[in-house]
Amino acid sequence: MLDRNEDILQAAEDWKKEGRGVALATVMETWGSAPRPAGSNLVINDEGTFLGSVSGGCVEGAVVTEALDVIASGEPKMLEFGVADETAWNVGLSCGGTIRVFVEKVG
């Protein structure tokens, strides 16, 4: 109830209707000190423009790269990341964390 995915998902719809290739990335599972909860979204278009986040910023680059593949192939992917320790230290947790992100094409 307290997240703000609405503008992100609206942007994904708008992009698609403009004829862009669009992918939707969703955090599906988290372990340890993952910075964004399950359900968090990142939307990516075929120009590499993205909105939202699936982590504190550390894995977005990799997700965008994979998303471009997904847009091209149409095949969904499940990605798994260990959140870098450096990021974890910043929030006072040294244990790191792991997130699993589902990337799917829209349309």
Binding site: L9, Q10, E13, E104, K105
Partner: peptide, 15 residues
């Protein structure tokens, strides 16, 4: 995700 599903999500959220 189908575009139609995404549209429905956005309609429900706006309401």
């Amino acid at each position: 995700m189908k575009l139609e599903t995404l549209e429905q999500i956005n309609i429900e959220r706006a309401a």
